[in-house]
């Protein structure tokens, strides 16, 4: 969701609380915000709460929105903050030491690498519902910090700069976390597709 879309929203109408313009904003961004919340919380009912809370807070805060970031980045920021708050409330013990790595760029702290080439699998295997559930499970194995970066950057397609703005961290931290998140997910998918390949080879 980029701001340069077809017809842009009228910010001053939004700030004045114009209902039809607010409805356009909600229509445009509700899927993205719901996706982010669901990715962060892995629970449809929590995701719905976050979705509602995000737009309630946004509509309340719109008159003071300064436009330093784009409207979408700002909405993402509210949604991620709300999600993190809920995670902290639900699991205070994981929220504190949330990352298995610190933010240094020490590649030696990575686990070993799976070297199996599963790129050649047919496209339909990647788009199956079984794969979808592996994708969802794998992303839940990331810490909330890594997860938020991966969701915004690689699923929602924000730039490094926008991701940094939405999360209130530096671009360097975004890059470090993104690398870790991506490598970790690659390991998970390599475990799954590697086994899958082995089975295929045995069968045929």
């Amino acid at each position: 969701m980029t701001e340069q879309e077809i017809d842009s929203l009228n910010l001053s109408a939004l700030k004045q609380g114009n209902h039809s313009e607010l409805a356009r904003m909600v229509t445009r961004y509700s899927d993205s915000i719901y996706r982010v919340a669901l990715g962060m919380l892995n629970n449809p009912s929590d995701a719905e709460d976050i979705l509602q809370e995000t737009f309630i807070k946004a509509i309340r805060a719109l008159p003071t929105f300064e436009g330093r970031s784009s409207l979408s980045t700002w909405l993402y920021r509210i949604a991620v903050n709300e999600s993190l708050m809920l995670i902290r409330k639900q699991k205070p013990e994981v929220a504190v030491s949330d990352d298995e790595f610190n933010d240094s760029n020490d590649i030696d702290s990575f686990p070993s690498f799976q070297i199996q080439d599963w790129c050649c699998l047919p496209e339909k295997d990647f788009m199956s519902t079984e794969t979808k559930s592996i994708l969802d499970q794998s992303i839940q194995k990331l810490s909330a910090n890594l997860r938020s970066v991966f969701i915004l950057r690689d699923i929602e397609g924000l730039s490094i700069q926008e991701t940094a703005e939405a999360l209130g961290i530096t671009e360097t931290n975004v890059k470090t976390r993104l690398l870790r998140a991506r490598l970790k997910l690659r390991e998970e998918l390599s475990d799954y597709f590697g086994e899958y390949l082995n089975k295929e080879n045995q069968n045929g």
Binding site: Y34, R35, F126, R186
Partner: peptide
Amino acid sequence: VVVNTLKKTIEIYHDQVSQDTAP
């Protein structure tokens, strides 16, 4: 292999998950 499977990982996530919509 690591580069190719990493690219593929990102691609699959993007293709599958970014299509999800709110019910």
